[in-house]
């Protein structure tokens, strides 16, 4: 998908790039009698920068509908602030998801999506989301799921399910979601 987007973007850019001059500049001329040397300032201005659209792929086939049906049955696993250990009260969710992984979802790759609350947009927050996903992955492997079926990604704070400014909302966002890949 990415390659299609890049290819189409490149073609569009090549087509458009001939229409304009790249790297426009601020031309400056020193016309002060007191300044002997002409100071020519060349400023690169992003005038002809192109906008690339990373979207544009939509629609769902029957396989995707089946996948989303299974995904809806899977429960998110939530975590304490700044922690990545699975809480005892979340064990039931993890085990329930593992059963689905080994039954309805046995033909799919499992994508574990780690997420954080809004307190921080830095790399540490993304790493925290990843460590949460990795805690779930470790438990899945210990339960017999093939490690080769599991991929992970951390979205940090960029994928909230709740945007209220409350403890409950922040708690909801500190989570790992289970998604399926063909």
């Amino acid at each position: 998908m990415k390659s299609i987007f890049l290819s189409s973007a490149l073609i569009a850019l090549l087509a458009l790039s001939g229409c304009s001059t790249k790297e426009p500049a601020i031309d400056t001329t020193d016309d002060s009698a007191k300044m002997a040397a002409t100071d020519t300032l060349t400023e690169t201005i992003p005038e002809d920068v192109m906008t690339v659209d990373a979207d544009g792929f939509s629609g769902a086939d029957s396989n995707e509908m089946t996948m989303s049906g299974i995904e809806r049955k899977m429960q998110s696993v939530t975590f304490d602030f700044d922690r990545f250990e699975i809480r005892p009260d979340m064990q039931e969710n993890v085990e329930g998801n593992i059963k689905l992984v080994n039954s309805d979802a046995q033909d799919y790759t499992i994508k574990l999506e780690g997420n954080c609350d809004e307190w921080g947009s830095d790399e540490y927050n993304y790493a925290l989301g990843l460590k949460r996903a990795n805690s779930v992955k470790t438990e899945m492997i210990q339960s017999g799921v093939d490690a080769g079926r599991i991929t992970m990604v951390s979205y940090g704070e960029s994928n909230p399910v709740c945007t209220d400014k409350t403890d409950a909302c922040w708690s909801e966002n500190r989570r790992v979601d289970f998604k399926l890949l063909p």
């Binding site: 426009p24 031309d27 020193d30 002060s32 400023e43 201005i45 005038e47």
Partner: peptide, 26 residues
């Protein structure tokens, strides 16, 4: 008395802020 003088050119006035920054820099 004029102590500093300069002329700036840009094809697109929408990017005027870059000339503002250039003047402040100078």
């Amino acid at each position: 008395s004029t102590v500093f003088s300069k002329k700036y050119r840009l094809r697109n006035s929408e990017q005027y802020i870059f000339i503002v920054h250039a003047i402040a820099y100078d």
